[in-house]
Design a protein around this nucleic acid. Structure first.
Length: 262
DNA sequence: AGTTCCCTGAGG
DNA sequence: CCTCAGGGAACT
């Protein structure tokens, strides 16, 4: 669930606590979050200085004096600058001043170190808030349903299920529409919708639909503005018809059949 | 390009 | 009890 706006919010809330700090000891406990040798990873990180904290797509990039620590929150991951260690705490970074905890009940997230940046990050498409319309449109020319393409991180980095549904509704485009056959005008509507919604969600600190919180444990408020996501059967805010839910790319997909055309 | 699978809390 | 939620990698 943490998508671009939530990850951006985490990055912003964690940055001041990490910059210039040194990792004294690190400890990991999940074979899913940290595949491979957890001990070697911990040894790799001990003594490292944190020089930068950034984001690329849904990945959190922590630049060290040696290599990069790349964190993905998966579905239920949280980075916290305070709190207690429990059974779901799968990463503990003891800093020379403070602590950083990685908490992830479902363990869909990941923590990895790499000397020159993660290859997973290298495969990402452009940032939605930086991509030009011309590049966006060229990238749309693929044989896929538009919703599936929005979820594809090599097409565009950072859009997940919630913001894909919200963007398609705002653009009036059916999730099953063929991406390649969107007219220029409709492609432009989608481009504008994705960017506007992501920017607005960042302003509101992201969406807290389940248990998402930023690094200080604060909730986001964009869920209040969701117009289709999680509103199956409820009236469309635009036409009053029932919001429908179907499965696209194995993801729950919410849309208004009257307001969103193929 | 579509399907399956990893995991666990929440809800039926 | 059982099913569902979903990001992304591996598979078909």
């Amino acid at each position: 669930m943490p998508e671009l706006p939530e990850v951006e919010t985490v990055v912003r809330s964690v940055r001041a606590h990490l910059l210039g700090k040194r990792i004294v000891i690190a400890k990991f406990t999940s074979r899913w979050v940290t595949p491979g040798s957890r001990k070697k990873l911990a040894e790799r990180l001990a003594g490292r200085l944190i020089e930068s904290v950034g984001r690329r797509g849904k990945f959190i990039l922590i630049g060290l004096d040696q290599g990069t620590l790349t964190v993905h929150l998966g579905m239920t991951g949280k980075l916290l600058v305070a709190g207690t260690v429990d059974t779901h705490t799968h990463g503990v970074f003891t800093l020379d001043d403070g602590v950083l905890l990685y908490h992830d009940p479902r363990q869909f997230g990941s923590i990895e170190w790499s000397p020159g940046g993660s290859p997973r990050v290298a495969r990402l498409g452009p940032e939605p808030l930086e991509v030009t319309f011309e590049e966006f449109r060229v990238r749309l020319r693929r044989k896929a349903r538009v919703k599936a393409l929005l979820l594809n991180q090599s097409f565009l980095a950072g859009v997940g299920n919630i913001y894909a549904d919200e963007s398609l509704f705002a653009a009036g485009i059916h999730p099953l529409a063929s991406a390649a056959s969107l007219s220029r005008v409709r492609a432009e509507r989608l481009y504008t919708a994705v960017r506007g919604i992501l920017a607005h969600a960042i302003e509101l600190g992201g969406s807290s639909i389940s248990d998402y919180v930023n690094a200080e444990g604060e909730r986001g408020w964009f869920q209040v503005e969701h117009r289709v996501y999680g509103r199956e059967g409820e009236p469309c805010v635009n036409c009053g018809g029932a919001v429908r839910k179907i499965l696209v790319a194995q993801r729950g997909t919410h849309f208004c059949p009257r307001c969103q055309r193929r």
